[in-house]
Amino acid sequence: MKATKIEFRFRVVIMVAVIFLGFWAPWIEPWASRASIAERIPVLEWLALELSRHGLLSFTAASPVVIVCAALIAAKSAALRIWGTAYLGPGTVNSSR
């Protein structure tokens, strides 16, 4: 289950490739143009549609709710990464005695 040395070395490239494939989603339309990729329904809109379809919220109310959720996730992640990087160093975890 552990990552190999090659995976570790190319971890950023692998992550970027997976994210790129997620945006492209070639299984939907393999030869889609950039314009048509950008016009696909994103999760942001899809979630708002689903919330309104299930009668939980109207679409006009669901859209900002989904946007705020996404922004909160992004804010917490950025804060966690900044906090973690700020304390990263040789003394991050050590032993006193």
Binding site: G22, F23, A25, W27, V43, L47, A74, S77
Partner: peptide
């Protein structure tokens, strides 16, 4: 951060 970015992808992506 990637979960936030996934909000801009198509659902299957």
């Amino acid at each position: 951060m990637i979960a936030a970015m996934a909000f801009l992808m198509p659902p299957t992506g």
